[in-house]
Design a protein around this nucleic acid. Structure first.
Length: 1023
RNA sequence: GGGGUUGUAGCUUAGCUUGGUUUGAGCACCCGGCUGAUAACCGGGAGGUCACCGGUUCGAAUCCGGUCAACCCCA
């Protein structure tokens, strides 16, 4: 017996029931611990930081990961890395902790104590881990959370130490003094991939300031800057030696600017000197702008550099080597010491400045005011530009000189570009586009952070500048004489070594490393390579994350793997775009329009949500739209459950049991099997190519055809009382279709398919079965094409009936077809009942029930015939059109009333003979002639069909079971009664009536059938 | 300023790789019909300068060039 199902249950209810079944019988566990084959498949989970709540985007990536993993399981793969991962370190965590304690500076953290602070971080990073796991359970993401990798665990960090030591020894790790993007609030530098996540568009005030040329009256050099706070430390002005500058006289003063900017800056000014090459300006000395900090020797002069452009500003760049990478280079070249009046908290620390103690961002407007007051300001301009902000705390970053450790990436660009060539990117354009571009411009990775909560940099340094890297705990114990359990700060800081080179004491470099190094190490650290595992997961077969990871995880995984293992980290990577809100806006916490994963799951149920994620291309944004979500699952899952419900209730009545697929010769059966198998084939292809959304699309199409074509056309087979061969075949096909679709759809909608599959087969689980393989010999492309022709003809006839005002219930005698090919007899049999015609046949062109009427094509003929048009037309109306057409066909033209008419000069109009209507089917090109003559017999038959339908409606209104039997009483005009009497048998068998009485219907319902009044009463008799 | 992606009906979209009848669906709207599984379905109506301009071609939504717009990334 097949389980009967309630088609009105919500998908959420079904999922809840299935989830508890899985739990009770350990189905998920079985899937995680077993495999159906031994092909290896390596997966890697991108680790979230669980100090924020999971939102809709998390749900989407997790759904797609699950779809791929379930498919791989079902295709006999042994899956490695089917576990979770948690990213635990880093600034994001520290910032949450600072908020918790109300701290605003590093000083406060240190006063509170690093140990206690880190202890809090270590706890808070798991605040929402339970909610993440709950989302996984709700959405059906089957991974083994008992084997999650956790980046703060000793084993994990030890692997990283191994990696860092290896890099150190290969010379890939180096320390340098550089200008780095720096967050003054967090007190640490950021790497380029972190900076790239924090650009925002802001409007700032930029200033044009005049530097007075030393010893020349009223002559200035005009420079432009968007960071007035760097002006107190101005050391140079830079021009481009290759471009032209002018000296301009404007309101009583002379200014040097790039010629290209003069017109814009000084409207209506007079030129004093034109076309001064930049290099002629080099060496000019100027007076200090803000006379507070004493400059060094050789400062305050114009120097040349070719990075200067004229697009913005004046073509002359104010240079403060402490606060810009280019500026720093200039300072280096000029061999000067750097003026840096700004502390690591971002405040002026030079007491000679009037803004002493102020943060530079606070000082900005004050400095502008001062410049104005002192007459140093030429003008200000509001500009909109993108500026980097700290991606976590939102403070504006400054460029700041620092000692920092770097990974030598730039020298290895070729390698990382090369290993990228081995990766399959979905979508492909990322490979050489966004990602490839980023790789080819890769900068050295600034790795060290002046912070607390992170993997400590395992490098010790002695007073003589000798460095040593430590690769694991054992080594550390040997070198320091102390065992350590926890590698974190502050414990590791306390360990001193004896320098191997000079014997003096060495202390750890006080940094932690970029948390992106943690997650980027997951390919080897997640399994504790090399200490706990002899192998890595490099390269994994598949990862998928959202688009923002191009510069994040995708990048760090790739760089680390290339540098350490000379390999790409992953072979296939699928990138997902964001889910936007219902108005197409980006979801964000601050906007208050973000949607939590749990919310969406509660609202829609897991499967509808998963289908929504599979609807359309993953790498295009989609708007969260609950109406669309329910529409998609209604079209697929609801339809599928209804097909099953129909199957199950009928099959149970007939005591059908599935033993094997029995295929009849019926083209309908052949067709649906072909469709089923071609869908299975394309699903396999798409899933192999990491295109699950394409697989879903093809399944959707199949479900639609099964329900609306196959089942509808097969319905009559199921009404037969006894088990016919046809019926059995149809059952077995329907069973097979439901089974295969459950399997095909199982990775995408795991809950509903489980429910369906188990109701159908009583097997343990759809998820422990092999993915279906196509039966190639069942695929008949030719038949699939023919079948769509059949459907097209049916549609056209329905349209013709509509136009002629003849209902579908009214039987007609014949449909005649003419075309360039024919539809074979068995398929004709499908057309007949659908269009309610007794015969459907093809005729030759000459036998078409049509008279051609030939008209003149005035457009081509008018100018030739002129006054003779009337005459020709008269002659034409007397001539047999067939003769004219024959002549045109043979010789290219026909002679009418002495005039020769070519093919393009006549128009042929087909006029169907009386009793026929004509139309053309566009898909097949067939001409269709429908005989619309309704004689008394046909009319009587039509009437009985009308009655049957009314009685069926009444059955439904009485909520009768489909096998309940009834008695019917019909009250009508005597003439109508006579007509009805002839069809009593048909009516009673169609409506399961034991008896039909003509006469008084008493309390019956009055119907108006096209003007004929009939009163009908239906009474239930039981089964 | 540089790079990438996208642009098809009110909305969601297919077709573009490989040029070939009149760009195909779904939702919503209106009219009509069908129904012994269905939350369905079928027919008709209205709604498209396939973003725009140019080129290649017998023929362009599709290929090429340019422009515009939106989004994303970089500087």
């Amino acid at each position: 017996m097949f389980n009967l199902i309630d088609t009105n249950r919500s998908f959420k209810e079904i999922a809840d029931e299935v989830r508890s079944y899985w739990k009770e019988y350990g189905i998920q566990h079985k899937s995680l611990k077993t495999s159906l084959g031994n092909k290896p498949f390596r997966f890697l989970e991108g680790p979230p930081t669980a100090n924020g709540r999971p939102h809709l985007g998390h749900a989407m990536t997790r759904a797609i990961k699950d779809i791929i993993l379930r498919y791989k399981y079902m295709t006999g793969h042994e899956i490695f890395g089917r576990s979770g991962g948690w990213d635990c370190h880093g600034l994001p965590v520290e910032i949450e902790a600072e908020k918790h304690f109300g701290f605003n500076s590093k000083k406060e953290i240190e006063e509170y104590g690093i140990e206690a602070f880190n202890a809090y971080c270590s706890k808070s990073v798991f605040t929402y881990i339970d909610e993440f796991k709950e989302v996984d359970s709700q959405i059906g993401f089957w991974i083994d959370h008992d084997r999650d990798y956790i980046t703060l665990k000793r084993d994990y960090m030890e692997s990283e130490w191994w990696a860092l030591k290896t890099m150190f020894e290969k010379g890939l790790l180096f320390k340098d003094y550089k200008i780095l993007p720096y967050c003054p609030r967090c007190g640490t530098s950021l790497s380029s991939h972190e900076v790239s996540q924090g650009y925002e568009e802001v409007s700032d005030i930029s200033v044009y300031v005049r530097f007075k040329v030393t010893g020349e009256k009223d002559t200035y050099i005009l420079a432009w800057t968007t960071t007035p706070w760097t002006l107190p430390s101005n050391q140079f002005l830079v021009v481009n030696p290759k471009i032209d500058y002018s000296l301009v006289s404007y309101k009583g003063s002379n200014y040097y600017v790039a010629s290209a900017t003069a017109g814009r800056l000084f409207p209506g000014a007079t030129l004093v000197k034109e076309k001064i090459r930049g290099k002629e300006l080099v060496g000019i000395k100027y007076d200090q702008l803000l006379k507070f900090i004493k400059p060094f020797d050789g400062n305050l002069q114009v120097v040349g550099a070719d990075y200067v452009t004229v697009e913005e500003g004046t073509g002359i760049v104010h240079t403060s080597p402490a606060f810009g990478a280019d500026d720093f280079e200039t300072g280096k070249r000029m061999k000067t010491r750097i003026i840096n009046p700004v502390s690591s908290e971002g405040k002026y620390n030079d007491p000679s400045l009037p803004w002493y103690g102020m943060s530079v961002m606070e000082a900005n407007p004050k400095i502008i005011e001062y410049l104005k007051k002192e007459g140093l300001l030429f003008k200000t301009e509001k500009i909109k530009h993108t500026y980097p902000f700290c991606y976590r705390c939102h403070s504006p970053l400054i460029y700041y000189p620092l000692d920092a450790w770097f990974i030598r990436v730039s020298e290895n660009r070729e390698k990382i570009v090369d290993t990228n060539s081995r990766i399959n990117w979905y979508p492909n354009h990322l490979k050489n586009g966004r990602f490839g571009n980023f790789l080819s411009e890769a900068k050295d990775w600034s790795l060290s952070r002046n912070r607390y909560w992170g993997t400590p940099l395992p490098i010790w340094k002695c007073k003589n500048g000798h460095y040593e890297a430590i690769g694991n705990l054992k080594e550390l114990a040997e070198r320091s004489g102390r065992e350590l359990d926890d590698l974190h700060r502050p414990f590791v800081d306390q360990l001193k070594l004896k320098c191997l080179q000079c014997g003096s004491e060495s202390a750890r470099e006080p940094y932690v490393i970029d948390t992106w190094f943690d997650s980027g190490s997951a390919t080897y650290a997640s399994i504790g390579y090399p200490r706990y595992s002899g192998e890595t997961h490099i390269p994994v077969d598949f990862i998928t994350e959202a688009i923002d990871q191009t510069r994040g995880w995708y990048y760090t995984l790739h760089v680390i793997s290339t540098l350490l293992f000379n390999s790409n980290a992953y072979n296939n990577v699928l990138t997902i775009e964001f889910v936007l809100d219902s108005n197409g806006r980006k979801m964000s916490k601050s906007e208050g329009n973000s949607i939590l994963a749990m919310e969406a799951l509660q609202q829609n149920g897991p499967d509808p949500l998963r289908l929504f994620f599979m609807f359309g291309v993953p790498w295009k944004t989609r708007n969260y739209d609950i109406r669309l979500i329910s529409e998609i699952s209604r079209k697929t899952l609801s339809t599928l459950l209804n097909v099953y419900s129909f199957f199950a209730s009928n099959a149970n009545l007939d005591r059908f049991e599935f033993k094997q697929l029995k295929v009849s010769e019926d083209p309908l059966d052949q067709w649906i099997l072909s469709r089923l198998n071609s869908t299975i084939r394309s699903c396999n292809d798409y899933m192999e190519a990491y295109l699950p959304h394409e697989a879903f699309r093809s399944i959707m199409e199949l479900i639609e055809q099964v329900s609306n074509t196959y089942l509808r056309l097969s319905r009559r087979k199921f009404w037969a009382e006894e088990m016919t061969e046809q019926k059995e075949s149809a059952y077995s096909i329907l069973y097979s279709i439901l089974e295969k679709i459950s399997l095909l759809l199982a990775p995408i909608a795991p809950f509903t398919t489980e429910y369906l599959y188990r109701s159908l087969t009583h097997e343990e689980s759809v998820h422990l079965k092999m993915y279906p393989a196509p039966t190639e010999e069942s695929i008949q492309p030719e038949l699939e094409k023919k079948f769509s022709d059949v459907l097209s003809v049916i549609e056209t006839v329905r349209r013709m009936r509509q136009k002629a005002g003849i209902k579908g219930r009214q039987p007609l005698t014949e449909l005649l077809l003419n075309g360039s090919f024919r539809i074979e007899e068995p398929l004709i049999e499908i057309i007949k009942p659908e269009i309610n015609c007794k015969t459907v046949r093809f005729v030759e062109e000459k036998d078409m029930p049509v008279t051609s009427k030939i008209k003149l094509n005035y457009a081509t003929v008018a100018s030739i015939l002129k006054g003779n048009i009337k005459k020709v037309e008269e002659e034409l109306s007397r001539t047999d059109p067939a003769k004219i057409l024959e002549a045109v066909r043979k010789s290219g033209n026909a002679t009418v009333a002495g005039f020769s008419l070519a093919a393009d000069q006549i128009l042929v109009e087909a006029i169907p003979q009386p009793g026929f209507i004509y139309d053309k089917d566009e898909k097949t090109g067939f001409s269709l002639f429908l005989n619309t003559t309704i004689d008394a017999d046909l009319a009587r038959e039509g009437l009985s069909r009308e009655l049957i339908r009314r009685i069926q409606v009444m059955r439904k209104e009485l909520s009768l079971e489909y096998d309940d039997r009834i008695s019917v009483f019909i009250d009508a005009e005597p003439a109508t009664s006579e007509d009805i009497r002839g069809s009593l048998e048909t009516i009673s068998s169609e409506t399961l009536a034991d008896e039909i009485q003509l006469g008084s219907a008493g309390e019956g319902q009055l119907w108006d059938i096209d003007g004929t009044k009939v009163k009908i009463l239906v009474r239930k008799n039981g089964k």
